[in-house]
Simulated assay, not measured.
Amino acid sequence: MNIDTALLANALLDDAPTAKATTPATIDIGRWDDSTVQGLTDAIIAGADAAGVRLKGIRTDTWGFGKFGIQQDTSNSGKFHGVPVVMTMLADFDTAEFVLEPL
């Protein structure tokens, strides 16, 4: 599957500041490989300041957590480039919820 992670990240970042509140964006990552998930996250982190937001955290299921290539630092979370990634039963299967908030 070929995903333009930079284009997707820009779309998320362009929309988030207009909400003027915490904005969750849920993406189905079930068919994505690890590098695509990590690439999207890197692109969001890289563009967040310029968009006037920050990536507050990411919620995902256990399978999605593994795609970030990180170790757990608590029983249900770890950090990807300083951003908390939390495994939760509240996340739909095969999804990652990127939570953006205004600066």
Rank of each mutant, 00 (worst) to 15 (best):
A51R: 14
G69A: 04
F65D: 03
T18D: 10
R31S: 15
F98Q: 09
W32T: 01
M87P: 06
T26S: 13
D92G: 12
M89F: 08
T18S: 10
A21G: 03
A9V: 03
T41R: 00
T41F: 02
D33M: 01
T18A: 09
K56G: 00
A46Q: 13
D61E: 15
G57M: 07
A51Y: 04
K67F: 06
P102I: 01
L100E: 02
I44V: 14
I3H: 01
V37Q: 11
V83L: 03
S35L: 13
D34W: 01
T41N: 08
I58Y: 03
A11T: 04
Q72S: 09
T18Q: 04
V99W: 07
I3K: 08
L100P: 01
L12P: 00
I44Q: 06
T5P: 02
K67G: 09
M89V: 11
K67R: 15
G82L: 05
A50T: 12
L12S: 02
W32L: 01
D49M: 09
I3R: 08
A43Q: 05
D42R: 13
S35Q: 15
T41H: 06
P102N: 04
A46G: 09
G30N: 12
R59N: 08
G52L: 00
W32Y: 05
D33L: 01
A16P: 06
G30T: 10
A19H: 15
A43M: 02
D15F: 14
A46R: 14
V83K: 02
L55G: 02
I29F: 10
I45R: 14
G64C: 05
T62G: 15
V53T: 13
V83W: 03
D34E: 12
L8S: 02
A19V: 14
I29Q: 13
G66V: 12
A96W: 10
G39E: 12
A43S: 05
R54G: 11
Q72L: 15
A50D: 14
G39L: 07
Q72R: 15
A19D: 13
T62V: 15
D14H: 12
T95Q: 13
G78F: 06
V85F: 04
A25T: 02
G30Q: 14
E97N: 09
W63G: 13
D14P: 01
F93W: 14
G30M: 14
M89I: 11
D28M: 08
D28A: 10
G52K: 04
P17S: 00
V85G: 00
T95V: 04
N10F: 02
L100R: 07
A96L: 05
K79T: 11
Q71V: 07
A25E: 02
V53S: 10
L90V: 06
L12R: 05
G64S: 08
M1V: 11
W63Y: 12
D42W: 01
T22F: 09
T62Q: 15
I27P: 06
T60F: 02
G52I: 00
P17E: 00
S35D: 15
V99Q: 05
K20F: 10
R59V: 06
A46H: 12
D4F: 08
P84D: 00
A91E: 13
S35M: 13
I3N: 03
